[in-house]
Design a protein around this nucleic acid. Structure first.
Lengths: 145, 145
DNA sequence: TATTGTTATACTCTATAACTATA
DNA sequence: TATAGTTATAGAGTATAACAATA
């Protein structure tokens, strides 16, 4: 049952893993500038202003248990960034909406996303375009846009 | 104080962030096959058999507090994967070494790294090579090898 | 005095299981 | 009976601060 060795794939894997761990170290400190954890940062990133999401949608997107979302949203709500609202269609559901404060913070966060976290500047423009194309396929966004 | 907008960089940033979060979801379940958390997985990955590391080195590499490493190593040691040894040169230091069990598990883990975690197969060989080159620069391995 | 590692404490993220209220 | 969300509980990862042993 010996797998065929693919040195390039193996190397790519290791680099991606390293990339993941490098990000894993830096993303939390980046997020901390906004007083957020990296998960809270992700949640805020997912929430479009004026487009409330059911809690269950969040659990799906984050691939985590629903009980987890409860605490996550508790903390964001305690800070006044989001609010739970009843869903008229199904009274079991609660939808999550950005508050004005949350929308402002999200905006600030997105504006900072052009900047510093990764030395993207070390890539030439055409390389950056190639990277974008590959990443789109890797994260499964190839078709959607 | 308006920053110049760079659409490509911004898009790359967003994709990298998405990539990070996609990995963040999948890496733990991948690691769980070996009965490890993703951080434990990272520690094991860093430990070459026969090359013990001081605890402080681990804290540096993981960019975390030393107190954190204590607990991390406690759990790995409890499972018999690593062991603390006194360092003869400096008696304040403890070095960490893989046990035979730890070395076997690490080996198994590395063998699995060729495989499934990312749909790398969707990239053409020359794209994969280009990706490797870019990632090397992004994670700061450009010079070292 | 400074450094290595530990302990105590606290917070966030995570899951499982049992529960409520709806459907 | 099944689903959406909560609560209770537990464990892992993280940090800060105080500490012991050693340098």
């Amino acid at each position: 049952m010996r797998k065929r060795l693919e040195p390039e794939a193996c190397r790519a894997w290791q680099l991606l893993m390293k990339f993941y761990f490098v990000q894993r170290r830096h993303l939390p400190e980046w997020a901390a500038r906004f007083g957020l954890s990296h998960v809270q940062c992700h949640v805020l990133h997912l929430m479009e202003p004026g487009q409330p999401l059911p809690m269950s949608h969040l659990a799906d997107t984050l691939s985590c248990d629903a009980s987890n979302v409860t605490g996550l949203v508790d903390r964001l709500e305690a800070r006044g960034l989001v609010e739970r609202r009843p869903a008229p269609a199904d009274r079991r559901v609660k939808v999550l909406a950005l508050t004005a404060t949350g929308a402002r913070l999200r905006d600030e966060m997105l504006r900072h996303m052009t900047g510093d976290p990764l030395p993207l500047s070390s890539l030439a423009p055409e390389e950056r375009r190639a990277l974008v194309k590959m990443l789109e396929r890797l994260v499964g966004e190839g078709e959607e846009r």
